[in-house]
């Protein structure tokens, strides 16, 4: 099974994290990982530990902010939220990614059933 899963391209994880935070609002690491796996519906090979490398990268670049809070089941968890800078980056990266995908799409001319995002 794992061999059929898609290995994440460098940089795509950051974009997914940003997009997750935009759609879901502030969320902790576990929540983000769950959400990405759900959206990928089992197609993505995600080592959940790498989420944290992505998070600290985004945090240090001030694209997201972090705050300790209390989770739905009353546990202490660190919540991440999109900043204005992060929103801007997400838009730019998404546009860019879209264009790359479109070009690849046209280039390969016979589109298989891949996701456009």
């Amino acid at each position: 099974m794992p061999s059929e899963k898609l290995d994440l391209l460098q940089g795509t994880l950051d974009l997914m994290v940003l997009q997750t935070l935009r759609t879901m609002g502030p969320l902790h690491g576990y929540g983000i990982a769950r959400r990405i796996e759900q959206v990928g519906s089992g197609d993505i090979l995600l080592n959940q530990g790498t989420i944290y490398a992505s998070l600290v990268r985004l945090l240090q670049g001030k694209w997201i902010s972090a705050e300790w809070g209390t989770s739905e089941n009353n546990r202490r968890a660190k919540y991440y939220a999109l900043t204005a800078r992060g929103r801007k980056r997400l838009e730019a990266d998404a546009r860019n990614w879209q264009r790359v995908a479109d070009i690849m799409d046209r280039f390969l001319s016979s589109p298989p059933s891949t996701k456009g995002a």
Partner: peptide, 30 residues
């Protein structure tokens, strides 16, 4: 952002124990 990140990385080098403890809690939660 690149500059922010570089500064943050330098800062992090001086706060290893606190940051490790903080991350351990986060990881434990996960």
């Amino acid at each position: 952002p690149a500059l922010d990140r570089l500064l943050a990385r330098f800062r992090a080098a001086f706060h290893k124990p606190e940051l490790d403890a903080d991350f351990d809690k986060e990881l434990a939660h996960h």
